[in-house]
């Protein structure tokens, strides 16, 4: 599915990355603990989280996360938004809680992602 579909399914606002809505996104990872994200999330996934600080953007950058979806109607502050713009990471904001967000996307065919670096390198 495209990021545009994610926006539709979640009735989300686009905070950063209006120009990237045609990006293909097929896997998702939901977490509030950035170490959990760092431990398991795969490049190119979307990150669903209730956290809105700079560390979410940094974590997304480190892992080449395709886009961030802030849940529960959370908004990031101006500095965090600027950091996301600078690092070219799209941010969407949905009013749904994480449970509902993940549920709706899963029901529409988005799959989870779990990848250890070791598994990735074994395949290469």
């Amino acid at each position: 599915m495209k990021l545009r579909d994610v926006k539709e399914i979640l009735d989300a606002d686009v905070i950063v990355g209006e120009d990237k809505l045609d990006m293909e996104v097929n896997t998702a990872f939901g977490a509030d603990l950035m170490s959990d994200v760092l431990s398991f999330a795969k490049s190119g996934s979307i990150l669903l989280t209730g956290l809105t600080n700079d560390q979410v953007i940094r974590t997304a950058d480190i892992l080449d996360i395709a886009a961030i979806v802030l849940v529960r109607g959370k908004r990031a502050n101006a500095d965090t938004i600027n950091l996301a713009k600078e690092l070219k990471i799209p941010i969407l904001s949905t009013k749904y809680i994480l449970f509902e967000t993940a549920g709706r996307l899963y029901a529409k065919g988005m799959v989870g992602c779990v990848e250890k670096v070791d598994n990735a390198s074994a395949r290469n």
Binding site: F29, F40, F99, A102, G103, L105, Y106, A107, G112, C113
Partner: peptide
């Protein structure tokens, strides 16, 4: 043994 996204998705579907 599932991660949050997939487990949530499955439970959401069951409840729906």
């Amino acid at each position: 043994n599932l991660h949050a996204f997939e487990l949530t998705g499955k439970i959401y579907n069951l409840l729906e």
